[in-house]
Amino acid sequence: MLHTTIELRQWRDDDTPAVLAAFQEPDMRAQAPWPVVTLRDAMGWIAAWSGVGHAFAVTLDGQVVGNVAVTDIDVHETGWVSYWTTPEARGRGVAAAATAQLARWAFRERGLFRLELGHRTNNPASCRVATKAGFRPEGIERAKLSHDGVRYDVERHARLATDRP
Rank of each mutant, 00 (worst) to 15 (best):
residue 58 V to C: 00
residue 160 L to D: 00
residue 53 G to N: 05
residue 22 A to V: 12
residue 152 Y to I: 09
residue 88 E to W: 15
residue 95 A to S: 09
residue 24 Q to K: 13
residue 153 D to V: 13
residue 151 R to H: 14
residue 48 A to G: 11
residue 148 D to L: 14
residue 133 A to M: 08
residue 155 E to S: 12
residue 46 I to D: 04
residue 72 D to P: 14
residue 165 P to Y: 13
residue 124 P to T: 04
residue 155 E to L: 10
residue 82 S to D: 10
residue 98 A to M: 08
residue 10 Q to K: 02
residue 27 D to G: 13
residue 6 I to D: 01
residue 144 K to I: 06
residue 151 R to T: 09
residue 22 A to D: 08
residue 28 M to F: 11
residue 66 G to C: 04
residue 86 T to L: 03
residue 49 W to A: 02
residue 3 H to D: 15
residue 44 G to R: 06
residue 22 A to S: 15
residue 48 A to T: 07
residue 50 S to C: 00
residue 123 N to K: 05
residue 18 A to D: 10
residue 117 L to V: 02
residue 35 P to A: 11
residue 88 E to D: 15
residue 50 S to M: 00
residue 7 E to P: 04
residue 87 P to N: 14
residue 24 Q to C: 05
residue 130 A to G: 05
residue 36 V to E: 02
residue 143 A to N: 10
residue 36 V to L: 02
residue 165 P to M: 12
residue 82 S to N: 11
residue 43 M to K: 14
residue 34 W to N: 02
residue 67 N to R: 14
residue 4 T to V: 08
residue 68 V to N: 02
residue 40 R to Y: 02
residue 30 A to F: 12
residue 79 G to K: 06
residue 134 G to R: 12
residue 114 R to V: 09
residue 151 R to V: 04
residue 132 K to A: 11
residue 36 V to R: 01
residue 105 W to C: 00
residue 118 G to N: 07
residue 102 L to I: 00
residue 53 G to C: 01
residue 151 R to K: 13
residue 14 D to K: 07
residue 3 H to P: 15
residue 136 R to I: 02
residue 1 M to K: 12
residue 42 A to K: 04
residue 63 Q to L: 11
residue 95 A to C: 12
residue 53 G to D: 04
residue 26 P to H: 12
residue 56 F to T: 01
residue 126 S to T: 15
residue 104 R to K: 07
residue 84 W to S: 01
residue 165 P to F: 08
residue 45 W to L: 11
residue 63 Q to T: 13
residue 164 R to H: 10
residue 4 T to L: 03
residue 53 G to K: 05
residue 90 R to T: 07
residue 126 S to I: 13
residue 151 R to C: 04
residue 105 W to H: 02
residue 62 G to Q: 10
residue 162 T to W: 07
